[in-house]
Computed example of a mutant assay.
Amino acid sequence: MDLLRVDDRLTDEERLVRDTARRFTAERIAPHVADWFEAGTFPARELAPELGSLGFLGMHLSGYGCPGAGAVAYGVACRELEAADSGLRSFVSVQGSLAMSAIHKFGSEEQKQEWLPRMAAGEALGCFGLTEPDHGSDPANMRTHAKREGSDWVLNGSKMWITNGSVADVAVVWARTDDGIRGFLVPRGTRGFSARDIHKKLSLRASVTSELSLSDVRVPPSAMLPEVRGLRGPLSCLSEARYGIVWGAIGAGRACYEAAVEYAGSREQFGRPIAAFQLTQRKLAEMEIALGQAGLVALHVGRLKEAGEVTPQQVSFGKLANVRAALDVARSARTVLGANGVTLEYPVIRHMTNLESVLTYEGTEEIHTLVLGEAITGVSAYR
C-alpha cells in the first residue's frame, strides 16, 4: 500500500532505521499495547534502555552519546513508533526533542555531561514542564515563577499534562523571573517538587501523564539553563517535537488503514467481501490518498530541515495537515470495521482516541491555523 512509493526516496540508512523500529515494535510493543492501553499503564523504565540501545532517544542530537541522525531518519523512527501507539512516540519525543533538546541547546557543559549520556542510554528519564492548568496555548502568561534568594533560586507553581512527569529523573521547568522566562533543571526528589499522575484519561492511556507541583523548590544557580532567555527557548524545543508529530501521525493513520484493508478483504456481507463494494473502496482510496499526501509533506519538511531551511510555519503546516489527515483516516477506518472497530482487538479505536490528543498537544489545531493565517496575511490574530 504506499502507491506513491514515498519510501523509495529514503536512503539506505533511513530504511535501516525504519526496519529496526518496525522489528522492535512488532516484538516488544504490539503484543502488549492494547493491554497497557486498557489498564492505563506504560512500562517507561523497562522500555527506555531498549530504546536507548537502538539509538532512538535523542537520535537527532549529536555528541554526548547521541547518534546525530538526520531529520528524516528521526521522522521515520517517529512514524514507525507511532504506528504501534502514540504514547510510545510521545515518550520518545518528550525524552529527545523536548527534555534532551533543551539541555543540548541551552545547557551548560556541566549540565550536558551530567544528563545527556544517561538520557541517551535510557538510564535517566526527562520531562518538559511548560503547560500550566490555566495556560496551555498562552505560555507567555505562565504563573510559575522563580525568585532569587541569596545565590539560590526558589520555584513555585504547577505544570499540567506533562508526559513522563512522575517517572522523570529530571524536569526541565520553565518559569517567570524578573529577567524573563528561564529554564531550570529540577531533579527528582528535590524538596518541594512532586508529580501526580492524571487518571481517567480516555486518550493516550498507554502513556504517563502528570501534574507537576513546585512549592518553594530551592535549586542552585547551576540548575538554570544559561544559554537562553524568553519564550524562544521552549518554543524552539516544541518545534522539534512538532516535527516528530508530522511523521508520527502518519504511522497511526497507516495502522488504521492497514487494519481496514485487511478487515474489508475478510469480512463478508451479502455473499461477498465488503472490499468488493464501491463505498468501501472509496473509503480505502481516500485513506490511501490522505496518507500519501501526508507522507510527501513529511518528507519535504524533513529534507528542508536537513538543509537548515525549514521554518516554524512549515512545521505547523505539517503538524496541522498530517494529524488532521490521520484522524480522518482513523474515523473512516472505524466505519469499515463496524462494531468491531470499537474493540481493542483491533488498533483503530485506540489510535483514533490517541489522535484526539495529538491534535491538541504541541499546539492545538486552532493555534497552528492561526500560525498559518499570520504567515499568509502578515497579521497576528492572537496577540
Rank of each mutant, 00 (worst) to 15 (best):
residue 202 L to W: 09
residue 318 G to E: 06
residue 250 I to N: 02
residue 203 S to N: 04
residue 297 V to Y: 09
residue 274 I to N: 14
residue 246 V to W: 06
residue 206 A to Y: 02
residue 232 R to K: 08
residue 298 A to H: 06
residue 216 D to K: 11
residue 295 G to H: 07
residue 202 L to I: 01
residue 231 L to N: 01
residue 215 S to R: 15
residue 224 M to D: 00
residue 314 Q to D: 09
residue 267 R to A: 11
residue 263 Y to W: 14
residue 300 H to F: 13
residue 259 A to C: 02
residue 270 F to G: 12
residue 263 Y to E: 10
residue 296 L to P: 00
residue 210 S to N: 04
residue 227 E to G: 15
residue 260 A to Q: 09
residue 279 L to T: 13
residue 241 A to H: 14
residue 245 I to A: 06
residue 218 R to K: 11
residue 230 G to T: 04
residue 303 R to N: 10
residue 253 G to V: 10
residue 215 S to Q: 14
residue 313 Q to A: 15
residue 306 E to Y: 03
residue 281 Q to H: 06
residue 227 E to D: 13
residue 221 P to I: 03
residue 228 V to I: 13
residue 218 R to M: 11
residue 296 L to W: 01
residue 313 Q to H: 11
residue 261 V to S: 10
residue 304 L to A: 13
residue 284 L to F: 06
residue 319 K to L: 07
residue 306 E to H: 05
residue 243 Y to A: 15
residue 322 N to Y: 10
residue 266 S to F: 02
residue 295 G to D: 05
residue 204 L to T: 10
residue 211 E to M: 13
residue 205 R to I: 01
residue 277 F to V: 15
residue 216 D to N: 12
residue 255 A to C: 06
residue 276 A to C: 11
residue 269 Q to W: 08
residue 255 A to F: 04
residue 320 L to E: 05
residue 260 A to M: 07
residue 214 L to W: 09
residue 220 P to L: 07
residue 290 A to L: 14
residue 316 S to A: 15
residue 299 L to F: 09
residue 299 L to V: 03
residue 224 M to E: 11
residue 306 E to F: 08
residue 239 S to Y: 12
residue 237 C to N: 12
residue 292 G to Y: 05
residue 313 Q to S: 15
residue 296 L to M: 14
residue 318 G to S: 12
residue 245 I to Q: 13
residue 230 G to F: 05
residue 286 E to P: 03
residue 294 A to M: 04
residue 229 R to I: 15
residue 239 S to W: 09
residue 230 G to N: 06
residue 313 Q to R: 14
residue 216 D to C: 03
residue 239 S to F: 11
residue 261 V to L: 14
residue 287 M to G: 14
residue 313 Q to M: 11
residue 254 R to M: 12
residue 227 E to Y: 03
residue 278 Q to T: 12
residue 203 S to G: 02
residue 322 N to L: 07
residue 222 S to K: 08
residue 279 L to N: 13
residue 245 I to D: 10
residue 203 S to H: 08
residue 274 I to C: 14
residue 258 E to A: 13
residue 215 S to A: 11
residue 217 V to K: 01
residue 226 P to W: 00
residue 262 E to Q: 15
residue 285 A to V: 04
